[in-house]
Design a binder for these strands. Structure first.
Length: 417
DNA sequence: ATAGGGTTAG
């Protein structure tokens, strides 16, 4: 049924569109977008920003590029809001270089524009660049706000810039008259934890002027995992079970730390406690876009029609990787299996399947981008470094936290994840 | 009159 939209104006068109996009009804929104144009309304700044945000959230680089073209053709390149949305879309789709280009051509940069560019660098592991941008922002007399500091601090934690992070944190109230909130405190815990300064992080949490949130304790637990501190992990996890009783992630983290320390019994007790409370670990899932279609993979997935080829590819790759010095890290297999079985279970992780499928469908491109809902597994992180070198491509993986850029045997996170 | 861009640890 064709509806009569003759009474609609710009504001109502944009309201409906943005409502559809925000509630995830993307197809409905796209249909409305073309109806809007048929009724003689050209998308304006607000329409474009709202469509770009939808592209950002669905990681639709293809859609975002189309809008970029439209923006270019229709001279919207001087609109700060539209360009900010464009910068964020490229960053979230793994194309930081394009974000930088868009940022460079901005005429006016407000606080949100700077914040977006700082956060884009932070999530791609460029802590130094995030700090440089922050300095430039201050020089250009744009006032930072609370979100600016969250962005800068998370850049510091991802790049192991401890002194810089602490100094930025201390400058907040002293220089910028912004009181650090719970999130900023959590960032500091993360800065210290990721640098291995676990005791300091623990003391910081205990002496904080505000009550530590689950994110602060969670950052510390993450540090305990990286630096294999079982004793502190038990204390921190106990705290998390109290203040965040319904989050299965905390049980999974503690269990992983215990498995890593070969404390199988205690690990399975932890997982049992999780199950007894009716909680389930979120399944790991990776996806990759090939020719405008999103292909998803879970562990051991055989649903893909080229599944046999994918496993064959990984098996051949595995031989080449071993010749290049790759050693499967069976610590990342959580069941108590014997050696050979463990290696088998490593080869079918969702991120390896998605990366393999991406490489098999390169079609002359030199870069693939894979997304994962959870954190990338340690063995996969290592394996993908080898794959990037052997195949001679750039592999970008966005896990639940950030982007990893693999190239020539190395990852942009410098193995600090 | 109604509408648009930026947060966190697993």
């Amino acid at each position: 049924m064709k509806e009569n939209h003759s009474k609609l104006n710009y504001a109502s068109w944009n309201s409906i569109l943005s409502g559809c996009f925000q509630s995830g009804q993307t197809q409905e929104a796209l249909n409305l977008l073309s109806e809007m144009q048929d009724s003689g309304f050209k998308p304006n700044q607000i329409t474009l920003t709202s469509v770009l945000t939808a592209c950002t959230n669905s990681e639709s680089l293809r859609g975002g590029k189309e809008i970029h073209g439209y923006i270019f053709r229709h001279c919207f390149l001087n609109d700060t809001t539209v360009l900010t949305a464009l910068i964020f879309m490229y960053a979230k789709c793994g194309k930081l270089k394009f974000s930088q280009k868009a940022f460079e051509m901005m005429h006016t940069r407000d606080t949100i524009a700077w914040n977006t560019m700082i956060m884009a660098n932070s999530m791609h592991g460029n802590g130094e660049e995030a700090l440089t941008l922050f300095t430039q922002m201050l020089k250009s007399s744009v006032k930072p706000n609370a979100i600016t500091f969250t962005g800068v601090l998370s850049g510091c934690s991802h790049s192991k810039l401890v002194d810089e992070g602490l100094s930025v944190f201390n400058s907040m109230s002293k220089v910028h008259l912004i009181e650090p909130d719970a999130e900023h405190h959590s960032c500091v815990v993360d800065v210290l934890s990721r640098a291995g300064r676990l005791e300091e992080a623990y003391k910081f949490i205990q002496n904080m002027s505000i009550k530590a949130t689950p994110s602060a304790w969670g950052a510390l637990l993450g540090g305990c995992r990286v630096y294999k501190n079982v004793d502190l992990a038990r204390i921190v996890a106990k705290k998390l079970f109290e203040i965040e009783p319904n989050n299965p992630g905390n049980y999974v983290s503690l269990s992983n730390i215990l498995v890593n320390a070969k404390l199988w019994g205690e690990a399975s007790e932890t997982r049992k406690a999780m199950r007894d409370k009716g909680m389930k670990k979120e399944p790991g899932c990776s996806w990759v876009q090939v020719k405008n279609k999103v292909h998803t993979f879970v562990v051991g997935d055989k649903r893909n029609e080229h599944s046999d080829d994918i496993y064959k590819f990984l098996s051949d790759m595995s031989d080449k990787m071993r010749q290049a010095g790759y050693l499967p890290d069976t610590e990342f297999v959580l069941q108590d299996l014997d050696g050979e079985e463990k290696e088998d279970t490593l080869c079918n992780h969702s991120e390896k399947l998605a990366v393999a499928f991406g490489i098999m469908n390169l079609k002359g491109e030199s870069e693939i981008t894979v997304f994962k809902n959870l954190r990338i597994c340690g063995d996969c992180h290592n394996a993908i470094k080898f794959m990037a070198k052997i195949v001679g491509v750039r592999i970008v993986v966005r896990d639940s936290l950030r982007f990893h850029h693999f190239r020539d045997g190395f990852c942009s996170c410098k193995d600090f994840w």
